[in-house]
Design a protein around this nucleic acid. Structure first.
Length: 225
DNA sequence: CACCAGGCAAGTA
DNA sequence: TACTTGCATGGT
């Protein structure tokens, strides 16, 4: 299935009706990687509590996470939930960066998108979405991050079926948008923002929109061919 | 009290 | 391949 996306409309709507900041503007690439892992299936408030703990312990750096005791690390990130697995995942990615890239994060992020992606996906606890998050926001390379809101919103509008898989949805965006990092960053934040503010039942309606964007507006943004 | 948040992996059929 | 379940804290 192909969709024709009216880019000009999207830019107009986003400019006029949204002021969604692209996430992770000021953080270091490593902090972005940590945040991407900690935020899995939780909200940013809980992540912030965990990050504050790490900061207090001076442990928000590659070297510290690599050398610190796993149990301590798990204790500090506890507020973000799933702290045992996430702690192990952080350790594994730190090991990879230290051992295979001599602690040079930029060297790792300089690789081609597919190289970075394959490396990240080998780490247990990093799946498609987290890998792409890191590529888009830490490496600043143009991949579109698909999350459950993207699929929920597009399927409710009738553009895709809700059982469409991650890679298929991503391909759809890659085929229909220019490979523009900033655009993908904003667009992803837009979907999350919309999804969080949409009603949880169905369908999207006038009373559950964000900044007066609702189902009909979305249909105008994404016009089926 | 229930529900869910910016997922992932392992298990089952 | 397509579901289901465990992982876990904190806010509403």
């Amino acid at each position: 299935m192909t969709i024709k996306i009216n880019l000009r409309k999207i830019y107009e709507k986003m400019g006029q009706q949204y002021n969604v900041d692209a996430w992770w503007n000021k953080e270091t690439p490593f902090e972005i990687i940590v945040g991407a892992i900690l935020v899995q299936n939780t909200n940013w408030n809980n992540v912030q509590l965990a990050l504050d703990n790490l900061h207090k312990r001076q442990c928000l750096s590659l070297h510290e996470i690599h050398t610190t005791n796993l149990c301590d690390l798990q204790t500090w990130i506890r507020p973000s939930g799933f702290y045992k697995q996430k702690g192990t995942t952080l350790k594994q990615i730190a090991d990879m960066l230290v051992l295979e890239y001599k602690s040079d994060i930029e060297l790792f992020l300089k690789n081609d998108i597919n190289v970075i992606r394959q490396k990240l996906l080998k780490v247990k606890g990093i799946g498609f979405e987290t890998a792409d998050d890191i590529i888009l926001y830490a490496a600043n390379k143009p991949v579109f991050v698909v999350d459950k809101y993207t699929i929920r919103i597009l399927s409710r509008i009738g553009i895709i079926r809700k059982n469409l898989k991650y890679q298929a949805v991503q391909d759809l965006f890659h085929e229909n948008f220019p490979k523009d990092t900033f655009l993908f960053q904003k667009l992803h934040a837009l979907f999350v923002s919309l999804g969080q503010n949409a009603c949880k039942t169905k369908p999207l309606c006038d009373t559950c929109c964000l900044n007066s964007i609702c189902e009909s507006n979305l249909k105008n943004l994404f016009s089926p061919t």
